Amino acid sequence: MKTGKDKNTPDSEEQVNNLENIEKQDAAVENETIPADHQMPGVPTDELSKTEEELSEMKDKYLRLFSDFENFRRRTSKERLELMKSGGEDVMTALLPVMDDLERAKMAMENATDVNAVKEGLELVFGKLTNVLQQKGLKPMEAKGQPFDADLHEAITQTPAGDEMKGKVVDEIEKGYYLNDKVIRFAKVVIGA
């Protein structure tokens, strides 16, 4: 038989019942959901409404910003497509007079008896074409006699050459071109070996 009481042991059935009731209330509170219109304790109503208004304003600003960005994206994509379609328009317009000259030269060649006159005409048209292309930024690449550079030249073959032409471009099969200092066609060359 015990003479002393354990501190954790309840004194009576009433205390046991009280403990069980407290545990049931705690479990009910944990499982309970708080309704949306329930006032939070310690938060004034005007502060809560002010916070809700700020949230509403921020949502509105976000939607407007998102809408503006979508409009900007669509407009930019449309402008890009239009630019791609008409990007070469200025070059084509500049080449039309050269095309007219070529047509006139073609008609003149049909009835021409003097080969030198035809040759001079073609040289004039070629000079005009070269000037138009240079105005638009096209520049021919000088490769013959230069050291071979893989960033500018495409080697087709090698040929035996003297010591002074070893590793240099001996012959140019196809001319290379720059457009505004960017290589748009590599020169096809023969390298001295």
Rank of each mutant, 00 (worst) to 15 (best):
G145T: 04
Q134D: 04
V115F: 07
N17Y: 12
M165A: 11
E79Y: 01
K78W: 06
G127R: 05
E54Y: 08
E53Q: 10
Q25C: 01
D100N: 14
T113R: 06
E47Y: 12
K188C: 00
E110H: 09
D11S: 07
S67F: 00
E30I: 10
N116Y: 15
M165R: 08
D46P: 00
Q146N: 03
V169S: 11
K128S: 04
E103P: 01
H153I: 02
L65F: 04
E79R: 05
L102K: 00
P44N: 14
H153E: 06
T9Y: 09
I156K: 13
Q146R: 03
I156D: 04
N21I: 10
A112I: 09
D163H: 12
K106R: 03
D149Q: 02
E23N: 11
Y178H: 02
K168W: 11
E123K: 09
N180Q: 15
F72E: 14
M92G: 09
N21S: 08
A112Q: 02
T76F: 10
H38K: 15
A28K: 12
E103A: 03
A143R: 01
L81H: 12
S86A: 14
K61L: 11
L96Q: 12
L95H: 06
G42I: 05
A112D: 07
A155L: 10
E70F: 00
D163Y: 05
L102P: 03
P41W: 14
L55P: 00
D68R: 00
G127M: 03
L19S: 13
I173Y: 14
N31M: 13
E54R: 04
A36S: 13
F66M: 07
E53W: 05
R75W: 02
K166N: 15
T157M: 08
E103V: 02
N17L: 15
E123S: 15
D60L: 00
M92R: 13
R74P: 03
E13R: 07
S49C: 10
E123M: 07
E82W: 03
Q134G: 08
Y62W: 08
R104L: 03
M40T: 14
T93C: 04
L81W: 01
E23R: 13
Y62M: 06
K61G: 00
F126S: 15
Q135C: 02
M107G: 04
V170M: 06
G88D: 12
I22P: 10
D26T: 08
A105P: 02
D46W: 00
M109W: 07
L133Y: 05
Q39H: 13
E70R: 04
A36R: 13
G162K: 05
E120P: 03
K136F: 01
V16Y: 06
G4F: 15
L179K: 02
R74E: 07
R75M: 10
P35S: 08
T159P: 04
N116V: 12
A187F: 07
D181F: 08
D68V: 00
M165C: 09
F72Y: 08
Q25T: 08
G88H: 04
